[in-house]
């Protein structure tokens, strides 16, 4: 179902205020880093929903430099994000702030690391929010611009989980 995905993404909520994404890529860190920091590359993968366009993708890759991504949904509404680079270690680590335009009062801090794994790269992106409400708003914003993604497919995922739960025998859990 996930198509030709080369690695399995993990999405976890390590605490009430954090979101952690982990994913392995079949390319060395310098390429994953390049793909994450050059606008002409970012445009290719970051704006992934059908009917969406990405008119603005600006990256001033230096400490104190700004970045700004703006997508337009199929109705022409802006979905914008921006922030500032706090720490840059080429091919290894980027720390930047991220603000979802509708919530300027709730900046988050994102730490992305690129870890070499024998020719591959383990990418970890940890997003730290000021409050649980802010974190939930981010996840809901994902839902919002993910709305272009067919509902039936998601319903299928939920359905699979539900029937999986029905099939799985209750594991023996140690007291």
């Amino acid at each position: 179902m996930a198509g030709r995905s080369s690695g399995k993404m993990q999405l976890t909520l390590p605490s009430d205020t954090e979101i952690l994404l982990t994913r392995e890529f079949d390319a060395p860190p310098h390429l994953v880093y390049e793909a994450s920091t050059k606008p002409e590359h970012v445009r290719r993968w970051w704006c992934c929903m059908e009917g969406f366009t990405m008119p603005i993708c600006e990256i001033d890759l230096r400490v104190g430099g700004a970045w700004r991504y703006v997508m337009l949904d199929p109705e022409g509404r802006e979905v914008g994000f921006h922030g500032e680079y706090k720490e840059i270690v080429p091919n290894e680590r980027i720390v930047h702030t991220e603000i979802f335009d509708p919530f300027p009062q709730a900046p988050t801090l994102v730490t992305v690391t690129f870890e070499a794994r024998g020719g591959k790269t383990l990418l970890r992106s940890l997003q730290q929010c000021a409050s649980k409400e802010a974190r939930d708003a981010i996840i809901e914003s994902g839902m919002e611009h993910g709305a272009a993604i067919a509902w039936d497919r998601l319903e299928a995922v939920a359905g699979e989980l539900a029937s999986g739960a029905a099939r799985t025998p209750a594991p023996a859990v140690g007291g």
Partner: peptide, 12 residues
């Protein structure tokens, strides 16, 4: 799941 789906698409 919808948030996950968004990022899985991006990473693909």
């Amino acid at each position: 799941e919808r948030y996950r789906e968004l990022w899985e698409r991006r990473f693909q």
